[in-house]
Design a binder for these strands. Structure first.
Length: 277
DNA sequence: GCCCAGGGATGCG
DNA sequence: CGCATCCATGGG
């Protein structure tokens, strides 16, 4: 993989460790559109247009540095994949999602997004987020920015219900009202234990959502978010039928250590995409 | 009509 | 601590 910077553009040649469709559709980001061999990705008030063919990816954006970090382009995924493929059970999943990259997204946007994700499906999550952007976010021309915290504080419980949050509306309202910009900034300089404790202290944030926020919004890789699909992964791996997600989280985090976040994402994509049980 | 979706809060022992 | 139950909503 070779990366070149042009005016308003990142060019990636021989992108064997980057598949745009896999990276966007593996459930770590909810604001994007795909049209043939082209995609548009949004984060905060920013936008990038990705186009690709077999041996090249182009990322066109005003925010080169932001999206370079966003797509984790300084990390060598070939080493990570080689290490994880030593695990027999994981090997197939790594091959299946070999172009997945873990996105480095905005902490606050991930907090709100993954609160909405709880006991929900991706189509509904996307719709709810889209609504919040168009209703409360800045108009950026042909798209809407993710609402800032102060903008989202103007939303009522009823607004969150209209957005489709259902019973999560009250929790979202309470957490948004309580949260300050400083809380978000403080998170970035905390230890991962402190980050976790703060996040699960928020209404609507449990262990799984906290781990997703840390993985996709704080760059913490030694976390293993356990959702329904990872529950299935664990049951197949251990030939059990347990639903004890705390136990599953403990064991899988211990098993994959510092590479937990990557392993989790390969597993999730492989199982969900193939509807495995 | 039931089941499921990137679960969490609450109450009870 | 572990465990059961409830929770909006839309698609399959």
């Amino acid at each position: 993989m070779k990366i070149d910077f042009k005016q308003n553009k990142i060019e990636i040649t021989n992108p064997q460790d980057f598949d745009v469709l896999q990276t966007l559709s593996c459930g770590q980001i909810f604001r994007y559109t795909i049209d043939g061999n082209s995609a548009v990705v949004y984060s905060q008030n920013r936008k990038a247009i990705l186009t690709w063919d077999n041996d090249k990816i182009e990322i066109e954006t005003k925010d080169i540095n932001y999206f370079y970090n966003f797509f984790d382009l300084s990390t060598d995924y070939s080493k990570i994949k080689a290490q994880l493929k030593k695990d027999k059970f994981l090997s197939k999943a790594v091959d299946y999602g070999s172009g997945i990259r873990i996105i480095n997204n905005d902490t606050y946007e991930m907090l709100i997004s993954f609160m909405i994700s709880a006991n929900n499906n991706i189509g509904r999550i996307k719709k709810s987020i889209e609504y919040l952007c168009s209703r409360f976010g800045d108009n950026c021309g042909n798209y809407y920015a993710f609402p800032t915290l102060s903008q989202l504080k103007r939303a009522s419980v009823q607004d969150f219900r209209t957005a489709g949050l259902g019973y999560r509306a009250e929790q979202m309202f309470e957490t948004v009202q309580r949260l300050t910009e400083q809380d978000i900034e403080n998170l970035k300089s905390m230890s991962s234990d402190e980050q976790f404790k703060f996040l699960v202290s928020l209404k609507g944030v449990g262990e799984k959502v906290a781990n997703c926020i840390m993985l996709f919004g704080l760059g913490v890789k030694n976390v293993f978010p356990v959702d329904t699909w990872i529950n299935k992964v664990y049951n197949r791996l251990t030939n059990t039928t347990t639903t004890d997600r705390k136990k599953i989280t403990r064991e899988l985090t211990a098993r994959y250590g510092k590479l937990s976040g990557y392993a989790q994402q390969y597993f999730f994509y492989y199982f969900r995409d193939n509807k495995l049980n």
